[in-house]
Design a protein around this nucleic acid. Structure first.
Ligand SMILES: [Mn+2]
Ligand SMILES: [Mn+2]
Ligand SMILES: [Mn+2]
Ligand SMILES: [Mn+2]
Lengths: 221, 221
DNA sequence: AAATTATTTTAGTTTAGTCTAAAAAAATAA
DNA sequence: TTATTTTTTTAGACTAAACTAAAATAATTT
């Protein structure tokens, strides 16, 4: 039904669309896909012809309902495969993304249905990202970036925004992962850095780190 | 390293090479890959340039050691994935080939190493075909086609030659699978058909069926 | 041995997806 | 409002992998 290239465009546009409220620009897509704007224009025309998105020349692009379905299904596959790799094959959470980038393109609805059951119907992938259901619906959860928390607030790490290997290994080294409870002990106004309490240790956390950790706040003080 | 098309050519040439002793012809490859001879010539040149095979124009083609390694690794992946689909995801043995055709192209040595361990280092796939090791070595077993057996010989089914869905479902219907013990009760000289004993039932088996079942003969009468 | 048939290769197209360079449109600055 | 810069699209070229049609070579038959 869709080529590898088409699938990757749809998936990336989907992500860009949820991050950037308005229409997604050609340059943004080009950057996201590590390609040239002229190539994007070509592919966008192709996908518009297939009714996967709307393209107003010189204005942005936006996925149709059909396009969103296709895209979220690829994301569903990506995240289910990541769960499989971590839960069943004991990969580390920083090792699975590249492999899932390939596996997400395997075409078989039955395979995904069975994989979902085999993994006991997970709601989140190893990085805390939600796994869309067959219809593209996503379980929304209350979460904030650590950088938005104030002094003395507590919470649990529920996800990472960036999931590059360097960042994930940084967290591993400090035994910080999903489910880890934290408390903000101090926050520096000057550079946005923080001191956080993790178990019985204290860590200095730069703003960049704090902006890449999703926290579910524990309301009760 | 290799494109999807290159991998499929190498895999098919490998199979053809083990079935047909001499050099593999252009037309044979074309038929096997459902493509045209002229396309084969082009790809064969490409693979020869990459030292994957030797090509004497107008004479056949034969894989180099390097080419055999690459090909057998794809076959290894294909068969390991088939084991996974049957053993872990409870697919039927006639449902896995198409999906494995896609999965065999996933590029990750680590993935295959872990999958092999996860499956407890299987030696054979669900159709009885041997799984090559990392070096391309295959465990050779004594096996004959059922059609070669004589009256009163006994044996165990250890594999199927053809593994199309129709044939496998035919076997399922009669509860004939790998591990099933059989005895040849009669063999018709005229058309090669047979009567075989399976458990406490007798089945009429055409020559075509008999030519697609691999048997390990039980030497002791 | 010559003619015929079958197989294989070459030559020239096609499509998907990419690129560079140039043109067009939109956004921003003067 | 005009000029400049940025963004986007168009035009034309390239590669991989396929195709058709024609030419070349090998195999087979007369
Ligand atoms: Mn990922
Ligand atoms: Mn993920
Ligand atoms: Mn198979
Ligand atoms: Mn098989």
């Amino acid at each position: 039904m869709f080529t590898l290239a088409e699938e990757n465009y749809l998936k990336n546009i989907y992500h860009l669309q949820t991050e950037n409220s308005e229409g997604v620009s050609t340059n943004l897509i080009a950057e996201s896909l590590q390609t040239k704007p002229s190539s994007v224009t070509d592919m966008v025309k192709k996908l518009a012809a297939k009714n996967m998105l709307l393209h107003k020349p010189y204005k942005g692009v936006s996925l149709t309902e059909k396009g969103k379905k296709v895209a979220s299904n690829i994301i569903r596959k990506h995240r289910l495969w990541e769960v499989f790799l971590v839960e069943k094959l004991n990969f580390q959470w920083d090792e699975v993304h590249e492999i899932a980038e390939q596996l997400e393109h395997i075409q078989s609805d039955e395979l995904i249905k069975r994989m979902d059951a085999f993994l006991d119907f997970p709601d989140f992938d190893p990085h805390g990202d939600p796994i869309p259901d067959e219809n593209g619906n996503i379980k929304v959860t209350e979460k904030k970036l650590l950088s938005e928390l104030k002094k003395n607030q507590r919470g649990v790490i529920v996800g990472v925004k960036e999931s590059g290997s360097d960042f994930l290994k940084f967290l591993d080294k400090r035994k910080i992962n999903i489910g880890t409870k934290i408390k903000v002990l101090g926050k520096e106004f000057f550079d946005g850095s923080m001191i956080i309490q993790v178990r019985n240790e204290q860590f200095f956390i730069s703003k960049k780190i704090a902006k890449n950790l999703f926290i579910q706040i524990s309301e009760h003080v």
